[in-house]
Amino acid sequence: MRNTFIERLTDAAETDSRIFLLCGDLGYSVLEAFAERHPDRFVNVGVAEQNMVGIAAGLALSGYKVFTYSIVNFAVTRCLEQIRNDVCYHELDVTVVAVGGGFAYGAQGYSHHGSEDVGFTRMLPGMHVAVPADAAEAAAAADYMLARKGPGYVRLARGREPQLHRAEIDELASFHRLDEREGAVLILASGPVAGEALTAANLLFEAGINASAVSTPIIKPFDVDAFCALLNGTSLVVTVEEHVTFGGLGSTVAETLADAGASVPLLRLGIDHKNRTIVGSQDYLRNINGINGHAIAARIRAKLEER
């Protein structure tokens, strides 16, 4: 998905001379084409993310549409104050693009686990936050950020994520159904872990529980009306994210339900900080945190049985 996103950006830079890409010394086998085709609008700033975001702000003040690129915590957390003060306060046209969302680099340890970034960015003024689930959504997320002006955050994974959409999607929407059902159990998921949500929905359906999985790539601004429309006939809402259960999708849904006065129960599934010292593959860590397909299905069944 990261290659798809950057390819879309590289093509757009062909016709839009405002597009500028900065990276923090990462992007091997991903950014080369952009650098070769647009050498005057690509800079590897070195391992210096705070400087990267400040430079992005300066370039945006000069009229450029700037994208910054690094791994989640370096792209967001290391330079959070520069994103807050220099970019968001001034409503500058800077999109932070992060790779390694969730457990994409799970074996590399907590430094490389993207587990709080959606919360950090969602709290910032004017920031649009996109968490695409597969390559099709990543391409649409690129179009989404290219079409707007202002601070943005796109959380990508790495490569070879399962394809959840059969074809390209025309436009990044707040909610993309991943199955044909409109189940009483509504499973909302953001990022590639939406594939696990779909597996869970299928398992539950086979067991006679009408569940459906919906990808939720736009965390902010959250489309409250579209969300409330989805609630018709829903008896349980479940959120699944490769992120802690606060600050991101689960919090957004909980806040929205509370504000709407909706009485539908909510089950939030995601990363548990108590597991932060455990390393391993993405599959292994999803299992540990109870967010692979089987675990999600089991936790939903348990939730249904407790009622």
Binding site: V43, A56, A57, G58, L59, A60, L61, S62, Q82
Partner: peptide, 13 residues
């Protein structure tokens, strides 16, 4: 500590 980076971006622009 923010201004010199912004200045770099302005100068590069």
């Amino acid at each position: 500590g923010h201004g010199l980076s912004i200045g770099c971006g302005l100068a590069m622009g």
